[in-house]
């Protein structure tokens, strides 16, 4: 591989986690109360993937980053005003629901179709990035399904690090650190694209806003948003019996002089209850 990676990041919007997120029933299934009116952010898991993609692209000459987003156009536009200032990318928007109650199969189908329709995308250089999980849905299934639909066999989930093995003359091979039990990582070496990586948190800080990057990105982001296809997201036979927010529990005790082992023991017992 001599011309760099083609990195496609899958990521969409979720409601700002500081907002009151209250599930409600609608004729089309569960939803969040006032969801369209709440401020949105780029899904934090996908955001890590995007920042890692931009970092990788900056290290490997000739690389390019696309952000494929399935979400309501108006919310995507709102979120782009922040995200587009942080890293350079080309947006591929799909105007459809970004609900946490959507069927992963349907979402994956839209994402895979959008990726396949990107002009000039070279499968031999393709890395598909995304969040291992999502802030609005913790199933961790969507990225796997996207990979399967694209026929990508090399998949890594819970990734915290990607290292190009030969920085000077990259042949496309890279080393991946995946999260495993016990706070440890599994180290794998991938011979090269195509591959799919579902990112955990990575190691990079959130890039600062840079309006110059934003102005450059906006030349393509705004036209792309205007042209975004509005597509239905089929329920795919999925239905929910009930939806409720996690119950908040607060049990506070003020205790001094406990050793870390004792604290850990107590937490383990509490979790086991």
């Amino acid at each position: 591989m001599t011309n760099g990676y083609h990195i496609v990041v899958c990521g969409s919007v979720v409601p700002d986690p500081l907002q009151t997120l209250e599930p409600v029933s609608t004729p089309t299934g569960p939803a969040l109360k006032n969801e369209m009116m709440l401020p949105a952010v780029l899904d934090p898991w996908a955001a890590h993937a995007l920042y890692e993609a931009a970092n990788l692209a900056s290290k490997v000459a000739g690389s390019k980053v696309w952000l494929v987003s399935v979400g309501p156009k108006a919310k995507l536009q709102q979120v782009m005003m922040t995200i587009a200032q942080r890293v350079s990318f080309e947006l591929v928007p799909v105007d459809a629901s970004a609900s946490g109650f959507a069927d992963s199969h349907s979402t994956a189908a839209l994402l895979a179709e959008a990726i396949q329709s990107i002009p000039g995308l070279d499968r031999a250089r393709l890395l598909v990035f995304g969040g291992w999980e999502s802030a609005s849905r913790g199933a961790g299934a969507t990225m796997q399904l996207v990979g399967e639909r694209l026929g990508i066999l090399d998949q890594f989930q819970g990734v915290d690090q990607l290292r190009v093995l030969d920085d000077a003359q990259p042949d496309g091979s890279f080393e991946v650190l995946e999260r495993i039990e016990g706070g440890r990582h599994q180290v794998s070496v991938c011979a090269g694209p195509p591959a799919l990586l579902g990112w955990a948190t990575g190691n990079l800080p959130e890039p600062r806003n840079n309006p110059q990057i934003g102005m450059a990105n906006m030349r393509t982001v705004m036209p792309a948003l205007q042209k975004a296809k509005s597509l239905p997201l089929p329920a795919g036979g999925l239905h929910f019996l009930s939806a409720s927010p996690p119950k908040q529990q607060r049990q506070t005790r003020v205790v001094k002089d406990l050793s870390p082992a004792q604290i850990a023991q107590e937490i383990a017992e509490w979790i086991g209850k």
Partner: peptide, 13 residues
């Protein structure tokens, strides 16, 4: 004015 919308987000951050 997306330039101003981005500016608002930057200043807010």
């Amino acid at each position: 004015r997306y330039d101003l919308q981005m500016l608002v987000q930057s200043a807010r951050a």
